[in-house]
Amino acid sequence: DEDSERELEKLRKNNASKEEIKEVLKRLGFSEDEAKKLAEKAG
């Protein structure tokens, strides 16, 4: 959803580590696997 998109955008701009991105995604309700895949894509 839009909030998670914004959250990811912010992380990308701040050069967050894949680990940080994954944690945020998991907080947003993604499964471990989904979060890992998305973090890879974002990283």
Score class of each variant (00 low, 15 high):
residue 28 L to Y: 04
residue 39 A to C: 14
residue 35 A to M: 04
residue 18 K to F: 15
residue 39 A to W: 07
residue 40 E to Q: 07
residue 22 K to N: 06
residue 6 R to P: 05
residue 33 D to F: 07
residue 7 E to G: 03
residue 8 L to P: 01
residue 32 E to I: 03
residue 38 L to G: 02
residue 3 D to T: 11
residue 6 R to W: 10
residue 40 E to L: 06
residue 31 S to M: 04
residue 41 K to F: 12
residue 11 L to Q: 02
residue 31 S to C: 07
residue 23 E to G: 04
residue 25 L to K: 00
residue 9 E to L: 05
residue 18 K to T: 12
residue 12 R to W: 11
residue 11 L to S: 02
residue 18 K to H: 08
residue 30 F to W: 09
residue 11 L to R: 04
residue 26 K to D: 03
residue 2 E to F: 14
residue 34 E to F: 06
residue 5 E to H: 12
residue 18 K to R: 10
residue 3 D to V: 12
residue 36 K to W: 12
residue 28 L to C: 14
residue 4 S to P: 13
residue 4 S to H: 13
residue 12 R to T: 05
residue 16 A to W: 08
residue 29 G to E: 01
residue 2 E to M: 13
residue 21 I to R: 01
residue 27 R to N: 06
residue 8 L to K: 02
residue 41 K to C: 13
residue 38 L to N: 02
residue 3 D to I: 13
residue 40 E to N: 07
residue 26 K to F: 02
residue 16 A to L: 11
residue 21 I to W: 11
residue 41 K to L: 13
residue 19 E to F: 04
residue 38 L to S: 02
residue 12 R to K: 07
residue 36 K to C: 14
residue 24 V to Q: 07
residue 20 E to R: 08
residue 25 L to A: 02
residue 13 K to H: 07
residue 21 I to G: 00
residue 22 K to S: 06
residue 27 R to S: 08
residue 8 L to Y: 06
residue 22 K to M: 15
residue 30 F to V: 03
residue 11 L to I: 03
residue 15 N to D: 04
residue 36 K to T: 14
residue 37 K to D: 09
residue 33 D to L: 07
residue 23 E to W: 03
residue 2 E to Q: 12
residue 1 D to V: 12
residue 11 L to E: 00
residue 12 R to Y: 13
residue 5 E to M: 14
residue 10 K to Y: 09
residue 3 D to R: 12
residue 40 E to D: 11
residue 40 E to P: 02
residue 40 E to Y: 07
residue 7 E to M: 15
residue 42 A to W: 15
residue 30 F to T: 01
residue 11 L to F: 04
residue 38 L to M: 11
residue 32 E to V: 03
residue 8 L to M: 06
residue 10 K to T: 09
residue 6 R to D: 08
residue 28 L to D: 00
residue 4 S to R: 13
residue 13 K to Y: 06
residue 26 K to Y: 02
residue 31 S to T: 11
residue 40 E to K: 03
residue 18 K to L: 14
residue 16 A to V: 05
residue 5 E to I: 14
residue 10 K to P: 01
residue 10 K to A: 09
residue 29 G to W: 00
residue 20 E to D: 07
residue 30 F to Y: 11
residue 33 D to I: 08
residue 1 D to E: 10
residue 29 G to Q: 00
residue 2 E to T: 12
residue 17 S to E: 04
residue 11 L to K: 01
residue 29 G to P: 00
